[in-house]
Computed example of a mutant assay.
Amino acid sequence: MQDNSNFLAEHTKALQNTTDVMAELLKKLPIIENLDSRKGGEYGCPNNDGEAKMKKIRRPYNINGKRFWITGNSEQEVSEEFAKILMKEKGISVKAQQTHDLCEKIDEWFEFKKAHKKIGIQTTRSYDKHIRDIKSHFDGIKVEQVTWQGIQAFLDKFSHQSRSTSYQKLVILRQVLQWAVSDGILTVNPAKDKRVIISQKAKKREAVPLKEYIAMVGMAHTIKLHRDRALFALVALTGMRRGEALALRWQDIDWARGTISISQTVIYDGDKPVIKEPKSDAGVRTYPIVDQLRDLLTPIMKHFGYVVSVDGFKPLGETAYTRAWQRVCKQINPNKYTPHQFRHTVASILASSPLISPKTAQTMLGHSDFATTMNVYAKTEIESALDAGRIFTEIIKSS
């Protein structure tokens, strides 16, 4: 008979998952009897003081007519020892179950995604941040050990963040674990369990109150640095996206006609600004120069270069942009409204006027899909945008 110590050493890895081992053995050995009529029990081992320091569990088993008493510190230990004896008696070799590190699986999935799908710099940065959070929380966890409860605990850990942020983390987990399902590692995806919930309520990003908006526009000429003043003027009076304002060049402004051509945007690779085309065709558009915007930009007008820039030759880096907006907030924006909130305000002003069609507002803001019903409106021409600009000016003046 094979030496017992060698046998146990040979099957050490096979015993890592006792549940699977037992399941396979029970299928192959229907002759295993239930526990002996004697129930066994627990007993304490006295220490030097005569007190029980640990409870032991002792269980009787009958295998092919042989009785075995198995002792352990827990039911898990008893089960593992039972599996060892059972394999020894029947000479059954159970192949060790292969496990897969979750963090390694995440890296494998992400590398494949980057290699086979077009992912922009901004999207990659967003993925990197969420993946760092996921890997930090699940460090050392095997794919096979991930449960819906563990995923819920992870999401609850980030409940202080926005709902959309938590949802993005959940989407990544769903995709990684679905990858594991496709590879045959898992049979079900725990991240798709209906019991997994995102507790945060969606926060609606409010527009800047009109009274405060008008006051800040009136104070914009007091902003000290020209680039800061230009940044505020563009986002507050056109509703441009941050990247569009940073990518605007003086040659994109037609002062004689009174229009601004928006055809590019800035994204960041680390702190480095990168010029890109808008993500949709709707992002390429013409916007009217309202009187208030002309008044703010004319004194600092140049003939070339970027409007929001230190030297005119390149857009602001991300750190420089952040500091510029912080200076704007310190001088005229004490409630620290974001550029996107000003965009919401411009949209609200456009929508509030019965003289500006929804389709015109959609074009001015660069929305690819304002609403399904907006498709019944005719295509907006530059003249329509100019008319809307004049109306926009009057709305601000009359408020």
Rank of each mutant, 00 (worst) to 15 (best):
A347D: 09
I395C: 04
W109T: 03
I275K: 02
R163Y: 10
M374N: 01
A320W: 01
E10I: 01
S263K: 07
I214V: 15
K272T: 01
D369Q: 15
L365T: 04
R327Q: 01
K201L: 14
D139I: 00
Q152C: 03
T165V: 15
I349Y: 06
V290F: 11
L173K: 09
D20F: 09
I131V: 14
Q98L: 14
Q175I: 00
S280D: 14
E144I: 06
A180M: 05
V176T: 13
R67Y: 03
Q149M: 07
K95I: 15
G243P: 03
T373M: 05
V266D: 05
S280W: 15
T99F: 11
V94Y: 09
Q122H: 12
L248K: 01
P190Q: 08
V78W: 01
A96D: 09
T363Y: 06
A320L: 02
L297W: 06
S199G: 06
S5N: 08
S398I: 08
E75K: 09
L248Y: 04
S162W: 13
I172T: 06
R343G: 09
C45W: 12
S399E: 11
K203H: 12
R249C: 13
A347Q: 11
S37M: 10
L26R: 11
S164E: 12
I197R: 11
P273A: 07
E89G: 00
R59V: 10
R242M: 05
S93I: 14
S399G: 04
S399T: 09
I223F: 05
A202H: 12
S162C: 14
I332Y: 08
A371W: 05
E383F: 09
D387F: 05
T19H: 12
D271S: 03
I391M: 07
W69G: 07
V181K: 11
S93M: 09
R125Y: 06
D128Y: 08
K95T: 15
H226N: 13
A247Y: 00
S79L: 12
W69V: 13
I275F: 06
T363D: 10
T322S: 13
V308F: 08
M240Q: 07
V188K: 14
A245W: 04
S309D: 10
Q145R: 03
L234Y: 03
L15M: 15
F154E: 02
F112R: 10
S74I: 09
P273F: 06
E111W: 06
E383L: 11
T165D: 04
D252M: 05
A385F: 13
Q200G: 12
I31E: 11
V274W: 01
T360Q: 15
A245P: 00
R343M: 10
V143Y: 04
W325M: 14
T187S: 15
